[in-house]
Nucleic acid binder design. Structure first.
Length: 545
DNA sequence: TTTAGGG
DNA sequence: CCCTAAA
């Protein structure tokens, strides 16, 4: 509460009303932050209750853990609730992929889950007793003493009846509470706070973002968003839709799910049986004491990435500049001003040669304004980008008008009212956020390759990732290349009996690598495919050999 | 427009 | 993931 001196006596309320606007601002900011954290705490408390229920029900289930009637959806929902994952807990039943694989391990899963729940419950209780109480208390005081209206959209989240714990308030205590959380739990906090999922692995970054409760840079859209996820909601059912960036990708992509279900059983069967064939390798490459198949399920249910996992399946990658760029927005920009049409060539030269993208421009010829924002960039294919790059000119009159605010509103539209002066501004797009591939996605990719053939990336994109903003055909190609590399490395390891020191341990499930090799065999290449007719248009089927 | 391959 | 030559 720096800069704000709230008196603890009962005169505090009067003092507040005399504070300067600046102080009120900081109070307001503080208040918002606390409310956001409260939202998380609400969720957490709910989860604790839920998990205790799960636990008691699992005690029964444990005795009949191998009972065939334990359905996969039950297991999924239990699993989802206990791990605080960014996974599919909201829609477990629509994901029928690898269901065979799943059924076999329900028993073991139940045992593991039970112990996990025990651990999780005690962690949460501890968190609740320390951090929660202090933050609730702080909220009471900030609300009651300052008498500032709550943010309307947040209101349903803050249940005053829940706010009943009276412990000395201390913000820093709250932050240190965040420090204690795992990355996964921080993801949950992030999701609750901003209404967005994130895959960021930088703990400090997450803590900073959450504690500041700043929504200025909310381009963190997790891969999982595309998997038909319902909008994140608070425990009270209130949907967090105040973030403008929600508009980026909130249309339902449920259409994709049926495609996954169409993954033919033969394929799944092979995936399953091939698992055992290369067990020795995975005995050392999968997390300790976790059978590979179990591990796959873990990945499937948590939506975790399969690449760059080190020991114990945790990612070791250190934060990159991308996270920083995400916070700071555009990485850099250049501009060029000219006085008349004669410099048009120079402008175009500038536009075409600087290795940046234009984000705002005015076409002089037809005076058509085209405005591109960071969000549009996610949607736009490179073709549109390039079109814009060709004529990136807009009025400098508008610029001089907005001179001071240029940085504050870099995307503001301008009008062409001075035809004799032009400004060209090129700004590099921020890099895409790193989005690790989930096993689910890899399976979709494999299905696509199986269906369309190796190298038909555009087709595969249309077939397997039709609505995914984040996986372009080039991304698919890149991922496939990595899978092939992993597959080759895997073969070498198997042959030599021990892995090359330089070769990183690939945590990619062996079943997937086996499938990659199968697809690599020439029968899955386009030249060996023959086109067939189908309602859905261009469908390639395999030659029979 | 799409693919392949280097960075 | 980005960038680009080449098809």
């Amino acid at each position: 509460m720096d800069g704000v001196h709230v008196q603890e006596e009962n005169t505090g309320l009067n003092k507040i009303s005399t504070l300067s606007p600046h102080n009120l601002d900081s109070i307001e900011a503080e208040r918002k932050r606390i409310i956001a954290q409260l939202a998380f705490l609400d969720t957490l408390l709910l989860k604790i209750k839920k998990e205790e229920e799960e636990r008691t029900s699992l005690e029964v289930a444990d005795h009949v853990s191998s009972h065939p009637k334990t359905t996969r959806s039950q297991m999924l929902s239990r699993h989802g609730s206990l791990t605080l994952t960014n996974g599919w807990d909201s829609k477990p039943d629509t994901n029928n992929i690898s269901s065979d694989l799943f059924e076999g391990y329900c028993g073991r899963q139940a045992t593991v889950m039970k112990s996990n729940i025990d651990i999780r419950c005690s962690e949460l209780r501890e968190f609740e007793s320390t951090t929660c109480a202090s933050m609730y208390d702080l909220l009471i005081r900030s609300n009651e003493k300052m008498q500032i209206e709550r943010h309307p959209q947040m209101q349903p989240v803050v249940d005053r009846t829940e706010v009943s714990r009276g412990i000395e308030a201390n913000i820093s205590k709250g932050i240190s509470g965040l420090e204690k959380l795992s990355i996964r739990e921080l993801h949950e906090v992030y999701r609750t706070t901003f209404g967005l999922r994130t895959s960021a692995k930088d703990k400090q970054w997450l803590i900073r973002r959450i504690s500041l409760c700043v929504g200025s840079s909310c381009r963190v859209i997790s891969t999982e968003n595309e998997i038909g996820e319902t909008p994140p909601s608070s425990p009270t059912g209130q949907v967090y839709d105040e973030m403008p960036c929600h508009q980026l990708d909130n249309r339902s992509t449920d259409a994709m799910i049926p495609r996954l279900q169409s993954l033919d059983s033969k394929f799944i069967g092979r995936l399953q049986s091939s698992t055992e064939a290369i067990e020795p390798y995975f005995a050392c490459s999968t997390p300790n004491s976790m059978p590979e198949d179990h591990w796959i399920i873990e990945q499937l249910t948590t939506g975790a990435e399969i690449q760059d996992c080190g020991e114990h399946g945790k990612r070791k990658r250190k934060p990159t500049r991308r996270y920083i760029e995400e916070v700071t927005g555009w990485s850099d920009s250049r501009e060029l001003v000219c006085k008349d049409d004669s410099m048009k060539d120079e402008i175009e030269n500038f536009v075409n040669n600087s290795k940046m993208h234009c984000i705002q421009c005015k076409c002089v010829g037809n005076s058509k304004t085209k405005l591109m924002t960071g969000h549009e960039r996610q949607h736009n294919s490179s073709k549109e980008t390039r079109k814009i790059l060709d004529t990136a000119i807009y009025s400098s009159a508008a610029r001089s008008h907005n001179e001071g605010e240029m940085n504050a509103h870099p995307f503001q539209s301008t009008t062409l009212n001075d035809r004799n002066a032009f400004l060209v501004e090129r700004t590099r797009f921020p890099k895409k956020h790193h989005r690790p591939w989930s096993v689910r996605e890899v399976l979709k990719l494999l299905e696509g390759v199986h269906h369309c053939g190796v190298g038909k990336w555009a087709d595969i994109k249309r077939y397997s990732f039709p609505d995914s903003v984040f996986r372009s055909s080039t991304d698919l190609k890149d991922k496939w290349r990595n899978l092939v590399r992993a597959s080759n490395a895997h073969l070498r390891i198997a042959r030599q009996g021990e892995r090359h020191p330089k070769t990183s341990v690939s945590p990619v499930p062996g079943a997937i690598l086996t499938k990659v090799r199968e697809l690599l065999s020439k029968q899955f290449f386009p030249e060996n495919m023959v086109s067939g007719k189908n309602n859905s248009g261009r469908i390639l089927t395999r030659h029979r050999s």
